[in-house]
Design a protein around this nucleic acid. Structure first.
Lengths: 124, 124
DNA sequence: GTTATCTAGTCTCCATTGGATACTATACCC
DNA sequence: GGGTATAGTATCCAATGGAGACTAGATAAC
């Protein structure tokens, strides 16, 4: 039995994992899933993202067919980003992860505290 | 209704997403889920990871309580990394993502080709 | 008329990160 | 003594990410 091997550099899965790994991409995806949003609305919604990063990530999400960009001829021009069907399925696959995070964050933080406390003793 | 807001910088969910965002962490987690592995075994299994990164990521996964490190007094010393129950649940939450990747990679690549082709025309 | 404001970005610079490579310590085999 | 294996650490350089200034085009305010 041949198993898809995500551990070789050219594995498809790894490419997608890298995309999801993108710090901002998932955040944007989940936001535009709820409702189409404009550039500056996204920027305000996502605390800490720079304009450069937002612009960059939006572009690559559009390239991947996960979101759609639509410029509207108003003054000043507004641009609306919305999720595609493909993007919706990805967002769905991310949900379990978000749920896990919400359920288990406390446990992770506890583990970190335990680990740090131990290291501190060793150092002392 | 108050919704957990993953978009503010200090949101728990975002911290976990950052962790999963780590290029190598998920790969390691999925590997040691199948069976405990040693340092160099992991290095050989994961194409392209440097020793520094492997060491670093293993340390932070251990700190988060997702894997366990066990040094065995052989010569030379061997160190075995295994997944914890907490780690197992996270790995489970990652599975849908991997499945999505395998199912939809082709479509993503197509979208990229379309996008690039269009940009090329505009540039020409 | 001129200055300010709004939009969606781009440009430039610097700090942080990631990766490649060399190196350490220990003990076995030959 | 030289080579191999273990699990890392140390060092250096390139790539990435973020902060903030800047652009364009048109309307609104003074």
């Amino acid at each position: 039995m041949k198993v898809a091997n995500a551990y070789s550099a050219d594995c498809p899965t790894r490419q997608i994992l890298d995309r999801v790994g993108d710090k901002w991409a998932v955040l944007i995806l989940l936001l535009v899933r709820d409702e189409p949003m404009r550039f500056n609305a996204l920027r305000r919604a996502i605390e800490g993202i720079s304009q450069k990063m937002l612009s960059q990530v939006l572009k690559s999400l559009e390239r991947d067919g996960l979101i759609r960009r639509r410029a509207i001829a108003t003054v000043p021009v507004t641009v609306e980003y919305s999720i595609t069907p493909l993007g919706t399925t990805l967002a769905g696959a991310v949900d379990p992860l978000r749920d896990w995070a919400e359920s288990n964050l406390k446990e992770v933080l506890n583990a970190q505290r335990r680990y740090d406390a131990q290291r501190k003793q060793v150092a002392a």
